[in-house]
Design a protein around this nucleic acid. Structure first.
Lengths: 167, 167
DNA sequence: ACCATCTTGTTCAACTTTCAAGAATGGTCC
DNA sequence: GGACCATTCTTGAAAGTTGAACAAGATGGT
């Protein structure tokens, strides 16, 4: 990382600067927009909604805290606070893990699932309006590929990922 | 917005879902990465750094609060708090606006500029490594266009934008 | 069994963000 | 000038986030 401080910095070209600014603007606008949409319609910020979605897709609608954190790309600390809040809402429940006494499972409650069922259509619509309704099919494909490349760069793949017996 | 709750919701296709998840993952990973990079190397979060950059590019390195907020896509409230913090660091100074007694100018101090000079290379390098070093020139162009479209959708252009005398 | 070490999840304090409310000034219309 | 509304910016409290420190349990070597 600090290799940057040595030698002549490789500045961004004009084109790259424009793209970078466009990226920052679009992503912050979208994040704000979805945060407000969900706060209004579902009573929670976007990330919390993402936690419920993730749980809803898990077997038995429950997941170990650490795995939920990993899947949603947030820290365990943040997740602890978030689940505490969602628990107060009655949308998630904690449950001791049988096989590991340190562990906790976050379980989506029936109420939590109900909230999802009620608010998912509006949220999908918001995402559509902001993104998929504006982009051509080609652009959607391009965006997907670009985002995959970026995520890969930032989340160094476990070198043993395809050697499960070594994990 | 709430038109979504009526009629059959238009769900995302499998492809669209994949793209949406990739988008969420990549953008949150990048934002976290840059936040940590800047917190470590410059002692402030990414958005605060963006404020300094914006000021550094303004005439006389100062800007009205409201304009700074508009350019950086944050609320005036948030900006007030942010500038207060940057002022404590000695990187920004407030100055009364001559022509409008309600107004304040946020001015980048010499110290603030120095912080930028010192940390910009490392930050640009981080951006490069995460984005521009991985994408082909075509992809960079595609990303720029896609982000422009999205930003436009979210930030309804002022209909009088090109009629300055009506603003 | 023992010890060192890693992992899991929580907690605390410091910091940031949001939302609603409010003080001050500007602009317009009569 | 005065009434009225809009704009600018700040404030305070509640909510959310971060990073470090911590307790408890797992793991592996000896």
């Amino acid at each position: 990382m600090t290799t940057a401080s040595h030698g002549t910095p490789r500045w961004l070209s004009d084109e790259e600067q424009r793209v970078w600014r466009a990226y920052l603007h679009a992503t912050t606008l979208l994040e704000d927009h979805l945060d407000r949409q969900l706060q209004r319609d579902a009573g929670m910020p976007h990330i919390y909604y993402g936690l419920l979605v993730q749980l809803s897709q898990a077997p038995r609608r429950r997941m170990r805290m650490t795995e939920l954190a990993r899947e949603t790309k947030i820290t365990r600390s943040r997740l602890s606070h978030a689940v505490a809040r969602l628990e107060k809402n009655g949308w998630v429940r904690r449950e001791d893990c049988a096989s590991d006494k340190r562990g906790q499972n976050a379980c989506l409650t029936e109420e939590g699932f109900e909230v999802l069922r009620r608010t998912a259509p509006g949220h999908v619509e918001a995402v559509r309006q902001a993104m998929f309704d504006r982009l051509s099919p080609e652009q959607v494909g391009q965006l997907g590929e670009i985002m995959r490349v970026m995520a890969e760069a930032l989340q160094p793949t476990d070198p043993n990922a395809d050697l499960p017996w070594l994990r």
